[in-house]
Design a protein around this nucleic acid. Structure first.
Lengths: 245, 245
DNA sequence: GGCGCCCGATTGTCATACCAGTTGACAATC
DNA sequence: GATTGTCAACTGGTATGACAATCGGGCGCC
């Protein structure tokens, strides 16, 4: 049984190393960043690679670089965006952070009902048809948890599209990038939720019927069940959980 | 009256130009990007600048670059994260996109009640004290809308901290980066909301009393009033609104 | 027809040089 | 004595050229 080798460019390696040092606090927020030429020397790479990594760090709002002056380490909790969550859920040592898993599940619970509501208010017949098609595929795969989990993700993607809200769409993408990293870990935990095909079908029906209140209520019940399951599972773990990655 | 000059590095210029072409659809999703050396030639800049811009685009999940092959333009609606919202709210021509403003206001409405709820459940006495201090400063500035708006942002930042949820914290940062770009535009529109100091104080009191239900309900009423005001204002505009930037 | 190899195109890495902005010390000036 | 101008030594920013690693298609061989 072979695993695909992890290939990583020099820029990626520099980026990840600096990112981990910033989020772990080894590089103190507010303190100056080492000069580019110092970093090249210390890391044994060329300056271009260091600059590309710094540009990405700046894009993530982890550092602030000023022409002429010294770059500054920022406080990621005060400035970084939701895209960073996917990086934070797995620690440098390759373990999951249970607190991050918990936080994203809570955010999902807060957004899901409103996504369903807006989808019911604004979704067209094509959106309803696409949702119905996915629920049909789910029904055909009843019992196959990994397949159902995949289809559930697709269901939510369609629902977000139907909600016609760009902020929700982008937030969903960020959350999914995070979720994908621990998806296998949650397959069993979320078994009750992703196996409840009837409820997915009911949401799709509510969207088709343009019944916003029912759609929101059904979505709330669905994700809150999953939230309870996740919290229950996390409560029985140490603060970190090993992962194969 | 002088304005600070807008300085922009070559890398920034390349990044913004390519980003705008991608989100506007001029570069078709799924189609190959021009080769790096082609872009250097076409844009009249060195290859390092192009590479730095491409790295940032990849970080934003707008393109996918593979060693040896041609890079690919991605569909930002399918892959980009919430951090992109701040870039999308202002079009290349410098106008606001009313739909984006609407979408972020809706997302705020969905998250705010749960943030208040979690803050009430988990916030400590220090969190409650910090919230009370901000409401006191708001009371002292009654009528000064820009100051109140600033303090309201600070209030929510403290509330998010009290909620002790990293996903909320990072999502707040992304949303605030977007909001900051159109803050002046919304000062008057949100006057009723940000002027309702009593309600902010009531939320702070509910957090101190650990009354999660009341905190959530108060927060919901607060932001929904603002949402109604924004929707009403947007309904009276053309799909785009000029902005001084 | 299928397999393997080679070739051309592209991105990745590196080294070097020079340009440009920032900062602080210090001298000139008022 | 306070202000202003100048300069030097940092810093990041831009430019160029060369070479390596990788990918994909086409060609030739079996």
């Amino acid at each position: 049984m072979l695993k695909p080798v992890r290939k990583q460019s020099v820029t990626d390696a520099v980026f990840e190393q600096l990112r981990d040092q910033i989020v772990s606090g080894e590089l103190t927020p507010g303190s100056p960043m080492p000069a580019e030429r110092v970093l090249c020397e210390a890391l044994g790479v060329n300056r271009g690679a260091v600059r590309e990594a710094l540009q990405r760090l700046q894009q993530s709002r982890l550092v602030s670089v000023r022409h002429g002056g010294t770059s500054q380490v920022l406080d990621y909790r005060a400035s970084a965006g939701l895209d960073l969550l996917a990086d934070l859920i797995v620690s440098p040592s390759g373990r999951f952070d249970a607190r991050v898993v918990n936080s994203i599940i809570e955010m999902r619970s807060a957004l899901a009902p409103d996504i369903a509501r807006r989808a019911a208010e604004r979704g067209g017949t094509d959106d309803a048809a696409a949702l119905a098609a996915v629920t049909a595929r789910m029904a055909a795969r009843a019992g196959d948890l990994p397949a159902l989990q995949e289809l559930a993700v697709e269901f939510w993607s369609l629902l977000v599209d139907a909600a016609d809200n760009l902020a929700y769409r982008l937030a969903y993408n960020s959350m999914r990038a995070t979720y994908d990293q621990c998806r296998a870990l949650l397959t069993q935990v979320l078994a009750d939720e992703i196996g409840d095909v009837a409820r997915y079908r009911a949401i799709a029906a509510a969207v088709e019927a343009r019944d916003a209140g029912t759609a929101a209520q059904l979505a709330r019940e669905l994700v809150e069940r999953g939230e309870r399951a996740v919290k229950h599972a996390l409560a029985q773990l140490a603060p970190h959980e090993e992962v194969a990655r």
